[in-house]
Design a protein around this nucleic acid. Structure first.
Length: 323
DNA sequence: AAGGGTCTCAACCGCGCTTCG
DNA sequence: TCGAAGCGCGGTTGAGACCCT
């Protein structure tokens, strides 16, 4: 055991002992209203930072760490409360597929949401689904399920919400959700088609070499039945719905060229490359085989109609062995 | 109504990195 | 240069809320 680790343990032991030693009297556990008031008051006048001394100066019998956490995750004025929206869910799935468990990095793109909140969302919702599918959350199968079934489903739900909110209004209505780096837009194209896109504004801080200009988007058009991934100037389309005869065309990827950007460029680019390399038949058979049954909770589907359509789609997929 | 199981999320823990004296 | 303190991140825990039988 190295010295630093030994020190940490000693410090933690100290914390533990303080729990039963009234001399130091460090508090742990849930914060009281009075403590919240003291901390907020102190930070609003003197600012944050130097958490250990802040805790002492504010008269709080808490560790600096505890104060920092309470402020960042709860007391900060711009902390956003309430359920994670569909748009936010979509962003979390996309960003997690790119960065993994980099919660604080992901949180940077969801203003008002904390890394803790996103981490909790992932653990309680996403990992639960992986468990239902009896597969590892980090497995390729589960990633494919998210990318090709869950995310398009979320996009459709955003569209549906947008459509219902704009029913009866003029054509070309538009609902936009903006974060620092992404714009999620639902709009009516004037021909009764509701489209949803996530536009990637370009990452200005891109230590990993992500796109720095132009846009990336994922668009689902109910009229054409295409899910369109747009990466800079490259466009790929994944067809996931039915042709007019109601015979499934199947998930097919239609590519403008084979000239893809490199690994570190563009939204969903990894997905497109994966799709090229995989047998679609095997991919979707695997996914369908993993899903024991569709349930409302699994996809977080909002209506019975959604559920029915999904079941139909699932059945069509199972009946069609040509892709 | 009761109680047992499950879910949610605030809070804590452990560790590595950075800053400072 | 070194060690201590501070900071921030990802992982884990547990109390209370909620749900189901």
């Amino acid at each position: 055991m190295d010295g630093k680790r030994s020190l940490e343990i000693n410090k933690n032991m100290g914390d533990f002992e303080n729990n039963v030693d009234d001399e130091m009297d460090l508090r742990r556990g849930p914060w009281t209203v009075e403590e919240d008031f003291k901390l907020s008051n102190y930070i609003s006048t003197l600012g944050e930072g130097r958490w250990n001394s802040l805790a002492r100066c504010a008269g709080l019998k808490r560790t600096g760490k505890s104060c920092r956490l309470r402020w960042l995750n709860y007391l900060r004025p711009d902390v956003r409360r309430g359920n994670i929206t569909l748009e936010e869910q979509l962003l979390i799935l996309e960003l997690h597929s790119r960065w993994g468990n980099r919660w604080s990095k992901i949180a940077q793109y969801l203003p008002g949401r904390t890394d803790n909140e996103i981490k909790n969302y992932w653990r309680t919702r996403v990992q639960k689904h992986a468990k239902q599918l009896r597969c590892d959350v980090n497995s390729q199968q589960f990633k494919d399920t998210m990318r090709y079934l869950w995310m398009p489903r979320l996009v459709e739900r955003i569209q549906a919400a947008s459509a219902s909110s704009t029913t009866g209004s003029a054509a070309k209505s538009c609902v936009t959700t903006t974060t620092d780096q992404f714009v999620i837009t639902s709009y009516d194209d004037g021909a009764n088609n509701n489209n949803t896109s996530i536009d990637h504004l370009g990452l200005t801080n891109n230590p990993n070499g992500y796109v720095t200009s132009g846009t990336s988007s994922v668009t689902v058009s109910p009229a054409s039945g295409l899910t369109e991934y747009n990466i800079g100037s490259e466009v790929g389309k994944i067809e996931t719905s039915f042709d007019p005869d109601q015979s499934l065309v199947g998930p097919q990827i239609l590519l403008p060229s084979q000239n893809y950007l490199d690994d570190k460029s563009g939204l969903l680019n990894g997905g497109l490359r994966d799709m090229q390399e995989q047998s679609y038949h095997n991919l979707f058979e695997n996914i369908n085989g993993m899903i024991p049954s569709y349930s409302d909770s699994f996809w977080n589907i909002g209506s019975d109609e959604d559920f029915w359509l999904l079941q139909q789609q699932q059945q069509q997929l199972l009946n069609n062995g040509s892709f």
